[in-house]
Write a protein that binds this DNA or RNA. Structure first.
Length: 482
RNA sequence: GGCGAAGUGGCCGAGUGGUUAGGCAGAGGUCUGCAAAACCUUCUACAGCGGUUCGAGUCCGCUCUUCGCCUCCA
C-alpha cells in the first residue's frame, strides 16, 4: 500500500507522490511568539512531527520548514488594534525583540519536551522583510496589487481562483455577513493588506518603497516557503482556522506571481477543545503546556494527542489525560518486559503487527489505529512472555525492534531508556538502579522469611515515592510511575 | 447570512455497505502471603425519522443538536 494523504484542496484522500522523486518539501505555519505555547500548539506540531517522521521512515528526504511569526500582527481586525507582540512588550515592560526571542525559546523548550523534532529551517518573518517587499513589488508590477496612501493591497478580483481552498469563492456572499467594517480605500471589500503604513507609535516597522511600515500577515509564509522550498511545494500544513483567510491569501499571492500551483497537498489539523469549546487565548480557557508538564509526563500528552486523528477535534479533560497515562504505561511495561525477561524457546511473529501499523500510517497518518495496533501487539507479546516456553532471543529482538521503531522512532511515545518510565534523567541513573537492586534483594529476603510487614513496607513506601514494584514469576522488577 | 466539520457504548476515541477497533473505567477468573502488575473472560453503541439495498453507524433525504471559520489564533 502506498501513502494516501487527505488534501484539503480537493477534500479527498489522494495518493502521495512528491514533485521530485525522493524529496518532500514541506512547510508548516509556525506560532506567533507572544505567549507560551498551549495544548493547541502541541496538537498541531506533534501531528506534523509524526507526518515528517513517517515520510522519513518511508525513505523520503524531507525538507521541513516551519516559520516563527515575530512581526506583530494586529490584535483586532485587519485595520485596527495594536500589534500583538508590541502589546505584550508593553505589558511586560520590555521591547518587542525581547518578547519574540523569549517566547521563541519557550516554544522550542516545550516542543523538545514533546519530542517534536526541530524543523530543518525555522525562518522568522522579521528576518525576511526584503523578500516580502520583493514579492509585493512583483505583485504590483503584474497588476495584482495596488498602493493607496502608503498601504498596499492585493486585488482579489485579479485572481480568479481566490477562495478555492475554503470554498469561499463568492466574495459578495462572504462579505455580506462580515463583522468587520471595511476601509473604503480598498477597491474591493475582500482585498487584503500586503503592506501597512505604520501608525504613530508603532514599534515594529521597516522602510519600504511605499511607506515606513510592516508586511501583511499572509505574506511571510509565501515569501519564506518559496525562498527555501521553491515555487511549488509538496505539503503545506497548518491549523484549520487558517484555511480562510490565511491560506487562501497565500495561494492568491504566490500563484499570482509564479503562475504555478503553490502547494500540492494542503493538510489541516483540527482544534483542541475544552468541554466542547475551542481553546483560545481570548476565551481564557487555553491550557498552557508548561503548567501541564508540572504534573504530567510530556509524552503522555503526546500519546493523548496521537490517540485521536489529526483531522478530528480533540477534547481535553483531566480524566481523558489520566486514561492516556495509564494506557501508555501498559505499552512501556511491555517494552520493559521485552528487555528484561530471559529468552526461552517459543516464537513470536511481529510481522503482522508491522504490516497493520504501516497500513494505518499510510492511510492519512491514522495514528489512533497505529496506537491500537501497538496495544494489540502488547497484549500478544505479554501473553507469549507469560507462557512457560516464553519467546526466543530472535523473536524478542524482532519484537523489540518493532516497538522501538513504531513506538519510539515514529510515534515518539515510548522512551529509549527502558528502566525509567519517566523522562527524568536523574532517576534513570546507575545509582538508582543499584539502590533498587539492593532494596529488591532485601524485600525478597523478607518475603522468604515471611516477614510481610517489612516487605509490604518496602513496597508501599517505594510506591509513595513513585516507584512501583512488580512481582512476576521471574522475580520482582520496578518502574518509575509517571 | 455564507463556508465547513461533526453527533458512536459510563468516559476518551477509530471505522465507514456484510466479519473484534483500541484505551480508560466496571464485572468475573488465573497468578500472589495479600496486593499491584500481567494474563483470560465479559457488560453497555452507532442523535431522530424516512428512503435505497438481499443487507446500513456506514449511502441518500429531511429533522434536531453541537462545533469551527467568515476578526488575531495551531
Amino acid at each position: 500500500m502506498s501513502l494516501f494523504i487527505y488534501n484539503s484542496l480537493g477534500r479527498t484522500k489522494e495518493k502521495f507522490e512528491p514533485l521530485n522523486p525522493g524529496i518532500v518539501t514541506m512547510y508548516v505555519c509556525g506560532p506567533t511568539v507572544y505567549g507560551h505555547a498551549h495544548l493547541g500548539h502541541a496538537k498541531s506540531y506533534v501531528s506534523f512531527d509524526v507526518v515528517v517522521r513517517w515520510l522519513r521512515h518511508s525513505g523520503y528526504r524531507v525538507k521541513y520548514v516551519q516559520n516563527i511569526t515575530d512581526v506583530g500582527h494586529l490584535t483586532d481586525d485587519a485595520d485596527e488594534g495594536e500589534d500583538k507582540i508590541s502589546k505584550q512588550a508593553r505589558l511586560e515592560k520590555t521591547d518587542p525583540m525581547e518578547i519574540s526571542q523569549f517566547y521563541t525559546r519557550s516554544f522550542y523548550e516545550d516542543m523538545d519536551h514533546l519530542e517534536v523534532q526541530r524543523p530543518n529551517i525555522a525562518p522568522n518573518a522579521a528576518g525576511h522583510i526584503p523578500e516580502q517587499i520583493d514579492l509585493i513589488e512583483e505583485l504590483i508590477k503584474t497588476g495584482h496589487a495596488y498602493e493607496v496612501h502608503g498601504n498596499v493591497y492585493f486585488s482579489v478580483e485579479s485572481f480568479p481562483g481566490y477562495g478555492k481552498l475554503s470554498g469561499r469563492t463568492d466574495q459578495d456572499a462572504v462579505q455580506s455577513g462580515a463583522r468587520v467594517e471595511v476601509r473604503s480605500e480598498k477597491r474591493h471589500m475582500s482585498d487584503f493588506a500586503l503592506w501597512k503604513k505604520a501608525e504613530e507609535g508603532h514599534l515594529m516597522k521597516w522602510n519600504s518603497p511605499w511607506s515606513i511600515g510592516y508586511p501583511g500577515w499572509h505574506l511571510e509564509c509565501s515569501a519564506m516557503s518559496m525562498k527555501y522550498l521553491g515555487e511549488t511545494i509538496d505539503i503545506h500544513g497548518g491549523g484549520m482556522e487558517n484555511k480562510f483567510p490565511h491560506h487562501d491569501c497565500e495561494i492568491a499571492q504566490s500563484e499570482s506571481v509564479t503562475g504555478k500551483p503553490y502547494v500540492r497537498f494542503w493538510m489541516h489539523n483540527n482544534m483542541v477543545t475544552v468541554n466542547g469549546i475551542k481553546m483560545g487565548k481570548s476565551l481564557k480557557n487555553s491550557v498552557n503546556l508548561k503548567e501541564i508538564f508540572k504534573d504530567i509526563d510530556p509524552l503522555v500528552i503526546r500519546f493523548f494527542i496521537l490517540q485521536s486523528h489529526y483531522r478530528s477535534q480533540l477534547d481535553y479533560s483531566e480524566t481523558a489525560i489520566k486514561a492516556s497515562a495509564t494506557g501508555l504505561e501498559k505499552l512501556r511495561e511491555t517494552q520493559r518486559r521485552l528487555r528484561e525477561q530471559n529468552p526461552g524457546s517459543g516464537t513470536f511473529d511481529s510481522a503482522p503487527f508491522m504490516q497493520r501499523f504501516r497500513d494505518a500510517m499510510d492511510d492519512d497518518f491514522n495514528t489512533p489505529i497505529a496506537v491500537a495496533v501497538l496495544f494489540d501487539f502488547s497484549k500478544s507479546v505479554n501473553a507469549a512472555l507469560d507462557r512457560v516456553e516464553s519467546i526466543s532471543a530472535t523473536s524478542r529482538q524482532e519484537a523489540e525492534a518493532f516497538l522501538d521503531n513504531a513506538g519510539r522512532k515514529i510515534l515518539g511515545i515510548v522512551p529509549e531508556e527502558s528502566q525509567s518510565g519517566s523522562s527524568d534523567g536523574e532517576l534513570s541513573g546507575k545509582r538508582l538502579n543499584g539502590v533498587m537492586e539492593l532494596l529488591l534483594e532485601l524485600r525478597a529476603e523478607a518475603r522468604k522469611n515471611k516477614d510481610f510487614a517489612l516487605s509490604d513496607k518496602l513496597r508501599d513506601r517505594l510506591l509513595e515515592t513513585g516507584i512501583e514494584i512488580k512481582d512476576t514469576k521471574e522475580g520482582a522488577s520496578w518502574a518509575v510511575k509517571s
